[in-house]
Amino acid sequence: MTIEFRDVHASYDAATPILRGVDFTVEDGEFVAFVGTNGAGKSTTMRLINGLLKPEQGEVLVDGVPTTQLKTSELARRVGFLFQNPDSQICCGTVREELLFGFRALGCLDEQAEARVDAVIDEFGFNPDDDPFLLNRGTRQLLALASIVVLDTPVVVLDEPTTGLDYRECVKVMSIISRLHQSGTTVIMVCHDMEVVGDFAERVIVMSAGQVVAQGPTFDVLRDRATLEAASLVPPQIVDISMALGMMRPALASTPLAAANTLDQMCDAVAAAVGATYSGVRGLEEAR
């Protein structure tokens, strides 16, 4: 399912424009991350995708159909939306009820839906009778994500899914999102954590002051220091180190050291530079 923005202008009140001519396309099955400072217009862009906000000018097309022609409930069948705060989303007395809520709202609660809910409960490792409001922050965020995953929409929009989570919870949430993407779902994610963006996104769209200032394959954008600085962003640490190496030592500029984007690539490059071989973190531990 393709999402297309054509010269979109949007605001919450006429006096303060938020988006000023946004253009981009997210192709079917892509994993796209939106980055930018607070107030850049990322969350507003997400709200336009699922019809919570309609464009003042321009068009937002979901699978070729303008969102202005679709009710939000119709869009909910196509686009799942994970809010930044899980407490906005959770409203039922048990985990199972919470996961059934979406099917009930869309009027498609049947045996198939019940089976799907049971499968998701198993997949996420929930206790179906737990009270969602008594779960910890990370588990509530997982439950909110599960309530989107269970509906099996072709597109999921995630507004800062890892905010407020510890490392383990963050890894769990992102591995679920990654599995979702591998199964063919289009993932659109707003994220401030550039390490997460580097690890998971295929393409990055940089927003600043209500406009798209850069877009392209993840590491092409993350290695564009001028664009990132203009948007007040910093690249992931490994990218930063490898770029710094290339700049400090011109002789290294064309070596794998200056082109490493991930920890593994950097370790490979360092190992090759010292005449050793690197076989991942486990290999290092065994060697030690």
Binding site: L52, T72, S73, R77, F81, F83, Q89, F101, G102, A105
Partner: peptide, 8 residues
């Protein structure tokens, strides 16, 4: 949030 889940 509930509207986004299909509540009308």
């Amino acid at each position: 949030a509930q509207t986004a889940r299909g509540v009308e």
